[in-house]
């Protein structure tokens, strides 16, 4: 009897310890989402009523669909280019070249510095009077300043700048976890460096690398500060939601809420799909 009571008491303390965490989870996350969900079914500007209009308006509007497509293009493109950039970078930094500590530190900077400042700096650097264009105009065949800011390519570049560290750092730690003896065995068995890379290194690190790229995808999908400042006319979902609130008086709460719900669902769906694909790869 006493034993059961002790066990019960023990359990009760555990749940009591977890209480603040769940309070903050429900109060600051679950309940706000519920409020948003309810709001998304209210007719615009009314306190009650029920309508699907907000969703229908958003999803049937070609501009609404463009916004969703743009968000996915940016997120997937960023993931792809981050991978393309991170794998060589990690392969180089793994070999402990001179100054590798400095370059590792550099890869952390976009993570630590507020995104706003990164965005401002990039706008200045790639602007028509920035160093990038000054250097480009020193080349013989470039006469006009290259336009990078406020274009889709530029926005993608900025995204990669800000979000590649997730991929780069996980790739690096996956590479460092490898047993070098395997590569040496491969080399002894007569594989050239390219073959070692293709058949020994890449297959081993792929699970870790793709897991890291999930983080890049996730953050790029929800990116807010970079497209808000540097996007110009290219507005992904997050910015579009904010514009519904900030640029209308009275604010379009219901429309914004519907978009927020759509965005949350898309994010969860994309992540689930990505994870499932990853797991299938690993099983094979």
């Amino acid at each position: 009897m006493l034993q059961t009571w002790r066990k019960y008491e023990h359990n009760a303390t555990t749940w009591l310890l977890l209480l603040p965490a769940f309070a903050s989870f429900f109060g600051l996350f679950a309940y706000p989402i519920l409020v948003t969900l309810i709001q998304s079914f209210r007719p615009e500007g009314q306190a009650d009523g029920f309508t699907f209009e907000n969703y229908i308006n958003f999803l049937s509007d070609p501009r609404g669909r463009d916004v969703i497509v743009l968000t996915f293009v940016l997120a997937i493109g960023t993931t792809f280019f981050s991978l393309l950039f991170s794998i060589p970078l990690a392969l180089i930094l793994r070999d402990k070249v001179r100054g590798h500590r400095f370059f590792r530190l550099l890869a952390l900077i976009p993570l630590m510095v507020p995104g706003l400042i990164g965005a401002l700096g990039l706008l200045l650097f790639f602007g028509s009077r920035g160093w990038f264009n000054l250097a480009a105009q020193a080349l013989p065949f470039v006469t006009e300043p290259l336009t990078i800011n406020y274009t889709l390519q530029g926005l993608m570049l900025f995204y990669v700048w800000l979000y590649f560290p997730y991929t780069a750092l996980t790739t690096l730690s996956a590479l460092e976890g490898l047993d070098r003896a395997v590569e040496e065995a491969g080399a002894v068995a007569g594989a050239n460096p390219r073959q070692v890379l293709r058949y020994l290194i890449i297959p081993q690190i792929i699970p870790g690398v793709l897991a890291g790229s999930v983080l890049t995808f996730m953050t790029a999908f929800g990116a807010f500060s970079i497209p808000l400042i540097t996007g110009g006319d290219y507005r992904p979902l997050s910015v579009q939601i904010y514009k519904e609130i900030s640029s209308f008086i009275p604010a379009h709460w219901s429309a914004a809420s519907a978009m927020a719900i759509v965005m949350g669902i898309l994010q969860v769906a994309a992540l689930t799909l990505y994870m499932r694909l990853l797991r299938q790869r690993q099983v094979r």
Binding site: I33, L34, Q39, G222, A256, S257, M263
Partner: peptide, 19 residues
């Protein structure tokens, strides 16, 4: 518990603001 870090903050920031 980690869900708020996986969902874009803007999706629940609206609700937080409203509350």
């Amino acid at each position: 518990i980690l869900l708020p870090r996986m969902i874009p903050p803007i999706t629940y920031a609206l609700g937080v603001a409203k509350i």
